[in-house]
Design a protein around this nucleic acid. Sequence first.
DNA 1: AGCGCCTTTTGGTATGACCAAACTTTGATG
DNA 2: CATCAAAGTTTGGTCATACCAAAAGGCGCT
Lengths: 237, 237
Amino acid sequence: MEIGNETGRAADNVVAALEAKIVSGELENESPLPAERELMEQFGTSRTVIREAISKLSSRGLVETRPRFRPIVRKPDYATVLHACGNVVQHLLTEKSGIKNLYDSRVFIERALVREAASSARKDDIVDLKSALEENRKAIPDSLEFYRTDVAFHGVLYRIPKNPIFPAIHEGYTSWLAPQWDRMLRSPERNEVNYIAHKAILDAILERDPGAAEEALTNHLKAAWEFVRVTFDWGDE
Amino acid sequence: MEIGNETGRAADNVVAALEAKIVSGELENESPLPAERELMEQFGTSRTVIREAISKLSSRGLVETRPRFRPIVRKPDYATVLHACGNVVQHLLTEKSGIKNLYDSRVFIERALVREAASSARKDDIVDLKSALEENRKAIPDSLEFYRTDVAFHGVLYRIPKNPIFPAIHEGYTSWLAPQWDRMLRSPERNEVNYIAHKAILDAILERDPGAAEEALTNHLKAAWEFVRVTFDWGDE
DNA sequence: AGCGCCTTTTGGTATGACCAAACTTTGATG
DNA sequence: CATCAAAGTTTGGTCATACCAAAAGGCGCT
């Protein structure tokens, strides 16, 4: 009866409707979705369709579903979107080449980020970098804490362009490449090496030398990859 | 009886099984999935969970579903993954700020790409660039063809790092930002301007001058954005 | 072979039922 | 009165069955 039902996909209407209600805030963020049986009455359709719609919303990151709980509404932001993509990306990381490609892309991005930082970081960016580096230094004895501050230091770089896409990408990299870092965690002797590398990057940024910053960053990440590669006992990539 | 069935998610088992069969090639790429009723017999489960599993596979880009057709197996590659992410990303592009952020990230990436091209493009890369530019020049009178060659020219840049992730990203940008380009298509007088910009970029690459290449690229994309912005009659971003 | 018609297959949807886990209410208890 | 455990209710996950319309496939006719 409803207009717009041309093609056989009843669930899409429900998806669109709920989608609208979520982005408009009519369905409040972080709050549970109405019960399926209520939705099916509300939309005048069967539970089959409702469930399929919820499944689609879930895979789009608009709701978060746990096995036996009510779905939770998630207003889309860059982080949840990247997280939703993670489910899709994971297939490409089962082979070494996929991981290598992803890591290389990270190196590529961060090279550009440190260039950007060196050429146009603002005062507060510099403050953030210094503070992140200091946290990093203090955490050298504690591998777990060092990992956290390591990620945080790189995270500051991703925030410098003031584009929310980049922090989201950073989250993607750290979560998708996390399994590899586990090995690094168990090698505390690497902490000081990595700290020194971070310091070299920051020094180059402070001197406003994009080339040096890029080189320092490249050396840092290449060394980290080499370490992981050897630890995993991979042949040459 | 099967191990790994701890948590109440029967569909996940089916997803995992089909997933494995797809990546292993047991389910041939580009060929249709078995019928739902056959799968339900094969897995000893109801059609409900089979359908849910197929829906999940679809949203992960492992199968492609058209409304009333058999799902088609799609072995995951970077392009299909990016395409699958497109459904998720679209929410962020409904506002101007989302488009602006995405476009800025593109500028950021391509700046790094042309630097890379200028500093380490190989002979065949140069050949590709020259040929793409020539195609671009010849297409100046035909806006539709010009658009195609324009995309192709930028695409060559994304292929230079020899990392399949970048061409996939390029596909993402071109498809996600396509609506904006429509306006550009109807302004053939822009074609020559854009061609000249492309030529300037290539010239800088040929001179192995990363800085000049980055600047030329930046000018090119900033101008294109400005044109779109004015045409759309947006205020300042 | 090419083409239109008819049968079968198959995806999309609707119902209704059942279970187990989550949630809510209730009521006994200290 | 606050606490907490038991009983009752809701609700997501699954199953079985049925029906429809469109796609696929077969069949006969030209």
